[in-house]
Amino acid sequence: MKRSFGERLFDGSNVVLMLLLSAVTLYPFLYVLIASISDPAWVVKMRGLIWYPHGFSLDSYKLVFDNPAILTGYGNTLLYVVAGTALNILMTSLGAYALSRQSVKWKNPVMFMIVFTMFFNGGLIPTYLLINNLGMLDSRWALIIPSAMSAYNLIIMRTAFQSVPISLEESAKLDGANDFTVLFRIILPLSMPVVAVMILFYGVSHWNSWFNALIYLRTRELYPLQLILREILITNSTDSMMTGVGGADKMPIGETIKYAAIIVATVPILLLYPFLQKYFVKGVMIGAVKG
């Protein structure tokens, strides 16, 4: 079909707009990457936009990886991401399955109470007192148990489970299957796109989480990577990484250490996205809330 001038203009405008949005989104990351591998003295003097590296130095990355706090934070964060995401998927799947079955009584009042928590909650102080009374203060459980399930993600997964034909469940139960068999061998395998999206949502949330660790943790050996990164960026605590650096070079290398730490903390979660991208749009659409 021959397209009109207005249609071509509209498509061209969309392309230009998306390219501009992509550039605005990508440039901050590119800026940090270029600054992290550039000459530290030049980075300190530079003002404005950066388009290419000036000089080349990986000293900042070496100092970052030589810092034991970074490696400990990495290990802690990986533990929180893996354990937390596994618990999130389990709890969300169990809740979504129960609330998506037609035979479950009182599911609408229960759903109302879950949605109610999205708008109203007890606040920080009651939550802190609860964590303390449960004996989870200054422990890894404080970063895993309280965030075991998201009401928003539960709604998405519940809607996805409702789209699975009820005849499959009925056939399985006629063959002697129980609810756990139906969930783990029928519902979840048929809902892998939305499960992949849940893994991405929960995983990114755990990876970027720092506030709960700041509130509930006191032992530095339990700190996640993002809390270590916060100390480096906000409190300027880079001196421990520069024990072998001369006095005149400490300020320039201290600035590039911040950029290198951002890259080190960001790249791993970026590498996860391409593996889940093919499920992302499909999973969100399957679990979309329908009126």
Rank of each mutant, 00 (worst) to 15 (best):
M136Q: 04
G247I: 13
M241D: 02
V289T: 14
S237M: 03
G122K: 09
T266W: 09
F29R: 06
N108I: 15
I199V: 14
Q102D: 11
E170A: 02
I269C: 10
V82F: 13
A177D: 04
W106V: 06
V264E: 05
F275E: 12
Y52F: 15
V182F: 03
N236D: 14
I263S: 09
V281S: 13
F65G: 01
G203Y: 13
M46C: 10
L276H: 11
A160D: 00
V182I: 07
I253F: 10
Y74L: 12
S4D: 04
F120L: 14
A213I: 12
G247Q: 14
G244Q: 10
A142I: 10
P53M: 09
A148G: 01
V204G: 07
I232Q: 12
L30Y: 14
D239K: 04
R8A: 08
P53T: 09
Y279K: 02
G6I: 11
V104H: 01
A41M: 01
D39F: 10
N133A: 12
V44I: 12
D239V: 02
Y74S: 00
P40Q: 05
K290A: 04
P193Q: 08
P126I: 05
G6F: 14
I145Q: 02
G122L: 12
M242K: 12
Y128M: 11
T243N: 11
L214G: 10
L134T: 08
N133L: 02
K290L: 03
T256H: 06
I262N: 01
M46F: 14
I144E: 05
S100T: 07
V264N: 04
L137I: 13
S171M: 06
F10E: 01
S93D: 02
F184E: 07
M157Y: 10
N236L: 08
D59I: 06
T85R: 00
H206V: 00
S57P: 00
L134V: 09
G122T: 11
R230I: 01
G55C: 04
T181Y: 15
I232L: 15
K282M: 02
P53D: 08
N212H: 06
L183G: 04
G203A: 12
F120C: 05
N76P: 08
G123N: 07
G287S: 01
F180I: 14
A69G: 01
L233N: 08
P53A: 11
A172Q: 06
K258N: 07
V44C: 01
F201D: 05
G48E: 07
L71D: 00
L229M: 09
V182G: 04
S171W: 02
V44T: 07
L9H: 02
K282H: 01
K278Y: 01
K2H: 03
L9V: 04
V245H: 07
R220A: 13
A151C: 12
L49H: 03
D179M: 00
T181F: 12
P53E: 11
V24M: 12
S100K: 11
T117L: 05
V164C: 10
G135I: 09
F112D: 02
E231R: 13
G283W: 09
L217D: 05
F180K: 06
N132C: 03
Q277R: 15
N67K: 04
G246M: 03
G84A: 02
L17S: 14
